[in-house]
């Protein structure tokens, strides 16, 4: 298994930090990609950050009320070695369903 760390992303509008309001996942919890991870507050607004990754949460950085700089570690996931860092979805190698039947009438 490999560990993947994600920093607090650039939230735009020149913001350089965000304050943790509430973690929506716990250490040890399996999360899916795009599942809400944490609610943070900036000087502009409060927002939920979606998970960039499917995996098990190993560590979260910062408790409620603590401030994290953009680019500093936010959360660490544990993922299988062969899928660490990939973009997209690992395709399932299953037998495909067919609907079309051939009408075979060879003239040779």
């Amino acid at each position: 298994m490999a560990e993947l760390s994600f920093p607090l992303p650039d939230l735009g509008e020149g913001l350089i930090e965000a304050t943790i309001l509430e973690w929506l996942v716990e250490e040890g919890e399996h999360v899916e990609r795009n599942q809400p991870l944490v609610e943070v507050e900036t000087t502009k607004s409060s927002l939920e950050l979606p998970s960039p990754q499917t995996g098990v949460v190993v560590r979260t950085h910062g408790g409620p009320g603590e401030t994290i700089d953009v680019g500093d570690p936010l959360i660490v996931f544990e993922v299988p070695d062969d899928t660490a860092g990939i973009i997209g979805t690992v395709p399932k190698d299953e037998k495909p369903k067919r609907r079309v039947r051939l009408n075979v009438d060879l003239d040779d």
Binding site: P96, R98, V100, R101, L102, N103, D107
Partner: peptide
């Protein structure tokens, strides 16, 4: 292209006269 589209392509070849 999926299996069905490939099979349709094969069928078009088989039906050509």
């Amino acid at each position: 292209p999926n299996i069905d589209r490939i099979l349709y392509g094969i069928q078009r070849v088989l039906e050509y006269r």
